[in-house]
Design a protein around this nucleic acid. Structure first.
Lengths: 363, 363
DNA sequence: CGTGCGAATGGTAGCGCTAACGTAGCCGCG
DNA sequence: CGCGGCTACGTTAGCGCTACCATTCGCACG
């Protein structure tokens, strides 16, 4: 139960491991890193020594010696703030294990020139690669600028349009289908839909998923009450109002994100409707808002932190490859989402109680 | 306009600066770091060279050579998620300029033993110091554990109880007074208050600020409609409901944080009250929720990112001092807040229109 | 005017790690 | 059997910076 692990002087080094394993430091390094050209027995011995001494390499020394990337940029523009928090948590994890520093900068402007300007300043400063979470992952000016500067980029949740570079996402289409099927299973036949921001590929994927599930059930998606939203609470207020003031309002509403779903709940309450008894409302994303309102939202959970981690890993791997001369062309990683069933959804009014479907299902 | 700044091999080093300034690398190092025992003219020359070459020190080499802290821990427990995002942004800034890595870990449990356990594992792992944002900054078991392990800690927003160690906060009392005075100025005489979690020193400070402002105006705080809340949306729902179902409800409600204020708005809407025409509602914190609902909240803005930055700076300075044998006893930094006036507040119904008071006022 | 002493600077030796090359040992081939 | 070529390691030389000590210089003092 020795614990000489704390950093600083006196920590255990690669030399200690080498001595314990009866090999040279270089061999230990090889084992830890890639591991090419090491006999199996040697590798095992080294790994055991590592285990026993609880050795963890000094990232500072490592990046110094390797002359490696020290800084990864992260350019963000206020997504739902809780999205950012989750994302940063994941990014930090990955950054730490890779021994790189995260450099973050906000880019709130919607103006193309200004975005380009911010990007240029940012990229010139110090970073070796850039991570672009939504909504910036869909910003043409930023992507163009970064491309021109030859800076590796990994986009997150960028639909699937751009078939170059690195991308991490979930399957929005499948997720939206699942959610819609769930509402159908509950017995809903009239289901409203609030679309997301039209510029985002993810919006379209979600909408198509909704339609496909409806069609699959023999319903006509063209006839469903559909309104355009823009991912903001405010736009959800307007869209929800429109849907609920129709002559024959639906018994369920699927909003393309949690903010708009929350807004719709607020509209429903104002109109004296109970959720979910009179009206089911579901969202998408599982941001903190989903559980901070009442009733808590049934929604689709994106593995945000995991996506951030994956993004960084991808980027760092690419950086390594580039250094050794083999840049990757196009890599996409699709992570799995999950349905989270909470209190804002239930069978339609007047339906005979359906078997409740509990828990989460991964895709 | 040369730009040899990108990291990796071939970047400009301290030697380049030394050569340009006509001194040794050692002197440059001294200038950059503390700067003791360097003649003024020499310092100027070095700084000019630094400027001209756009030199920035290699943090990896620095921490390697100095054998310095490489990892600062950050233990969090789901505060309002947007608080976390802001906090992380600030922390990252500071971490990067200091060249340390942020290691973050969540500690959601409320159980004392479990908290201690998590803390122990966390602290044993790797970190040289720990940052504790609220609500963990008030957790006795965590503080005790860290203390026992002799790990430096900086708490954030911890009221002002503990007169040892490092702390960063705002003046909750003054801020609450300001907000209350603002409502009084608008003409409100019946003002409700929703208290924060009773365990938090900040809650008490805010409540006392509210009372003091009321007393100052010749009103009796004992008679005001006051309900206990717990910082959660749900608790706000209950407290808001209670206040509004009183015989003579107030014309304004001051909630101790934004979540509870948002909940109160929701309750008001359900009861057919318009905000702010029929009822003014104000919050505290200026989290993302404040602007993502409608109407947007009048609230007190905490400089969250700046607080995080300050916290890290304090901690890193302390770490340095400890290494040279002079630990600091008690350092507190109080940052300034700001009133943010938005749409959820206005004159009481039936009042003659008061001059609108716009913009933000720093304290 | 020598001595002492502190202030200002330089030289040296690493921090822990990894490229890059060197060197054994082994195999198969002509 | 000698040579090329491979695999599995070890050796050497730093990466960029700072701790530590040595050195120089100026200046006050007896």
């Amino acid at each position: 139960m020795a614990r000489p692990s704390r950093r600083g002087r006196g920590a255990i080094t690669i030399e200690d491991v080498a001595r314990a394993a009866g090999v040279s430091a270089m061999t230990v390094s090889r084992v830890i890193n890639n591991g090419s050209n090491v006999r199996e027995s040697t590798r095992a011995a080294v790994l055991e020594a590592v285990e026993q001494l609880n050795y963890s390499p000094n990232t500072a020394a490592r990046s110094l010696a390797a002359g490696e990337a020290a800084h990864i940029g992260l350019l963000y523009a206020n997504p739902s703030a809780s999205y950012l928090a989750q994302f940063l948590i994941g990014a930090l994890h990955a950054a730490r294990s890779a021994g790189v520093h995260l450099v973050i900068e906000s880019c709130e402007s919607e103006d193309a020139d200004e975005q380009a300007e911010v990007t240029r300043r940012f990229a010139t400063s110090d970073v070796e690669g850039v991570v672009l979470p939504p909504p910036l992952s869909e910003s043409i000016p930023i992507l163009a600028e970064l491309d021109a500067m030859q800076i590796p980029v990994v986009t997150v949740a960028m639909g699937s349009a751009r078939a170059v570079g690195l991308n991490v996402r979930i399957d929005d289409h499948a997720a939206a289908m699942e959610m819609t099927r769930y509402l159908l299973e509950l017995g809903h036949r009239e289901i409203g839909f609030i679309k997301g921001h039209p510029n985002h590929v993810a919006s379209q994927d979600r909408y198509r998923g909704f339609c496909d599930a409806l069609n699959e059930a023999g319903l006509d998606c063209e006839k469903a009450p559909i309104e355009q939203g823009y991912f903001s609470y405010r736009s959800g207020l307007i869209a929800g109002e429109r849907i609920l003031s129709r002559a024959n309002p639906p018994s369920a509403i699927f909003a393309s994100n949690d903010d708009m779903a929350a807004a719709t709940i607020s509209v429903a309450h104002r109109r004296g409707l109970n959720v979910p008894q009179d009206l089911s409302i579901v969202g998408f994303d599982d941001t903190a808002l989903a559980t901070s309102i009442w009733p808590e939202l049934t929604t689709v959970k994106q593995p945000i932190a995991a996506m951030a981690e994956a993004a960084l890993e991808l980027l760092i791997a690419d950086l390594r490859q580039r250094r050794s001369g083999t840049p990757q062309k196009f890599v996409e990683r699709v992570l799995s989402h999950a349905m989270i069933i909470r209190e804002s959804s239930g069978p339609p009014p007047g339906a005979r109680p359906a078997k409740s479907r509990k828990g989460a299902k991964a895709s």
